[in-house]
Design a protein around this nucleic acid. Structure first.
Lengths: 186, 186
DNA sequence: TGTACATCAGTGAACGCGCGTTCACTGATGTAC
DNA sequence: TGTACATCAGTGAACGCGCGTTCACTGATGTAC
């Protein structure tokens, strides 16, 4: 996340992170090695370990960056919970590598402070959206509404990523629109 | 799936499958090898490959068995879509290894006939539940209702498995109840 | 401005290890006569 | 019922390979004087 310019060969940290995201998007979260990433990034095979320690360290950086970008995307969607929901689905689809790592905590150190800070920020954006919509309801109803909203967008996104929604067309964000509307506009 | 009694050492195929499910539940879908499974099952290291060919073959068998058990669980829940939804969440929580493999098609051969047959059966149960509930509505509304129902239970289950719903208590099935109710009973 | 030194990102050869795969084999079961 | 043979699930030694890790190094940059 610190994104310092590196000394000898441009920004190696950035290059390795990008290679990781690329490899995960192509091959999933399992089928890659630090050496493969180094080859992809055009650096020595020892460089990734030098920067990140091990795979979990690298994936922790991916998760932290992912949650930060995710929070940015949700914030940019504005105050309407529908739009926040669509932004949630759009992020998952457009950044599937980040999304898959973020929601597979067995892969990384989920208690890393940078990760928890970025994740908390994303959750605060979602919670604010729900509060705006369920204002005046009883606290437990607001909580249920929040869980329902989170579940429906997350479920839609994950089902689409897993290929289960093949009959839904090639624009998952548009396909999500009536589904999200159904939850709150009746 | 065929579950034939094996010749020399009891049911080796079954033993390897059980070891795989156990290992995946403990360590995730990535951090295991065929040799490790063989050790866990107490068989020679060549046995898993003998039966399943490779990791993808083994995971294809896990996915097929998972979808079959999943369809059984949904069928057993009866005609009420709420109960089907709760059964969906319960299956994910109680059989997380199967569930995670099933919805990560990059891990296995998703076009395997046994897999597609079991998956189609599960989807038919879900579709029937939605039809019972959305009867008389326009086709596209029924489709939207089906997507919404599937998304909300899948999202809740996946969020819980990923540890994101830590504030929800230790009984995810009970916690899912009001969330599912919110979708259809207003 | 110039020189000498310290720092440290990144290198690359070397290592030991667990992996998947191969392959000749063993031995229990099923079948033919 | 007994014998001889075929089948094939499962074994275990051996292989070559890519992996993560170590470690002495290189060389560009930053700093002190």
């Amino acid at each position: 996340m610190t994104d310092q310019p590196s000394y000898h060969h441009g920004n190696l940290r950035r290059a390795v992170l990008d290679a990781a995201v690329e490899a995960i998007a192509e091959q999933g979260t399992a089928a890659w090695s630090l050496r493969q990433l180094a080859r992809r990034a055009g650096v020595s095979h020892a460089a990734p370990a030098h920067h990140f320690g091990d795979k979990a360290g690298l994936l922790t950086a991916v998760a932290a960056e992912g949650y930060a970008r995710f929070a940015d995307a949700l914030e940019a969607a504005g105050d309407d919970l529908h739009d926040t929901g669509l932004a949630y689905v759009r992020f998952a689809v457009e950044h599937r590598a980040y999304f898959e790592v973020m929601f597979t905590p067995a892969l990384y150190r989920a208690d890393d402070p940078e990760v928890t800070a970025a994740r908390d920020r994303a959750e605060r954006v979602l919670a604010a959206g729900v509060r705006g919509l369920a204002a005046g309801e009883r606290p437990e109803d607001e909580r249920t509404a929040g869980l329902a909203a989170w579940s429906i967008v997350h479920g839609f996104a994950h089902l689409w990523l897993s290929g289960a929604l093949s009959g839904v067309g090639d624009d998952p964000v548009e396909a999500a629109r009536p589904v999200i509307r159904l939850l709150f506009e009746r």
